[in-house]
């Protein structure tokens, strides 16, 4: 009825059998043997994908929200509609948004779908922070810039934007940490990132090493990214330290 390959398949021992997996078979809370075996094939690729997902989302979100903020800075009427739309996007539960985007033609179970959702969560935070940062530049400073003969563009690029950097970066920090956390949920529709080992581990009834390891990586990534952004801010605004 069903043709078998001559002599049947060769069945390897799969890593040496039970004695190589005592910790795993006993379902101890944390198996370092699992970690060393799965860092290369499972965790490292997942971490790399997670970083890429985050970088793309934050970069695109930064470009969109900064552009909108710069326009709204000069054209006040734009602020309200942008705030309303980005606030609505921000309040949609992530799980629902991923499921809503999935049937849209051209999106489906892809990285694009994940990025569209992730970007939409960064807009409100970065738009509001950038706009607030620009608005908080003291009028005297703006006047001084004008008095020095700077036109509006030069004043924006050389005076107002630099002074808004701490507020802008504060927005980038919140957006980045948010995206790192949400990107674990994105693995439901885009099978990559740290959400993959986390989801696999959740459906595992007894063995918890994978959940602990992947969870710790996600937390560690968020802390590292936040720390890096603090350093970037310090480098960009040396005057805030000099005081």
């Amino acid at each position: 009825m069903i043709a078998l390959a001559a002599g049947g398949p060769v069945i390897p021992t799969f890593g040496g059998g039970g004695s190589s997996f005592t910790c795993e078979r006993a379902n101890r809370l944390f198996c370092s043997s699992w970690l060393s075996r799965n860092w290369g094939p499972v965790l490292w690729p997942a971490l790399r994908q997670h970083i890429v997902l985050t970088l793309i989302a934050v970069t695109i979100g930064f470009v969109i929200s900064t552009t909108l903020a710069l326009i709204a800075y000069r054209r006040r009427w734009l602020e309200r509609p942008v705030l309303i739309i980005t606030s609505i996007l921000y309040t949609i539960p992530s799980l629902a948004l991923f499921e809503l985007l999935e049937p849209v033609p051209g999106l489906g179970l892809s990285r694009t779908t994940a990025e569209v959702a992730l970007v939409s969560y960064t807009l409100l935070i970065m738009f509001r922070n950038t706009l607030t940062g620009l608005r908080e530049v003291p009028d005297e400073v703006r006047d001084a810039a004008a008095g020095m003969g700077m036109g509006p563009l030069r004043s924006l690029l050389r005076v107002e934007l630099p002074l808004a950097v701490p507020a802008i970066i504060a927005g980038v920090r919140i957006a980045t940490v948010t995206v790192i956390s949400l990107a674990t949920v994105a693995s439901l529709i885009d099978n990559e990132g740290l959400g993959v080992p986390i989801l696999t581990a959740i459906s595992n009834e007894v063995f918890k090493t994978e959940l602990i390891a992947a969870g710790a990586l996600a937390v560690g990534l968020a802390l590292t990214a936040d720390g890096l952004l603090v350093i970037i801010q310090r480098l960009l605004t040396p005057w805030t330290r000099a005081a």
């Binding site: 398949p9 069945i11 390897p12 190589s20 997996f21 078979r25 799965n38 499972v42 994978e210």
Partner: peptide, 26 residues
């Protein structure tokens, strides 16, 4: 074959791709 591969993943906690690779290589 499939029971042993299931065991390598479900009991020994190896990654499915690792187990599949060993079987195909053999």
């Amino acid at each position: 074959a499939i029971r042993k591969m299931n065991a390598a993943v479900a009991l020994d906690q190896q990654a499915p791709a690792t187990v599949a690779h060993q079987f195909l290589a053999a």
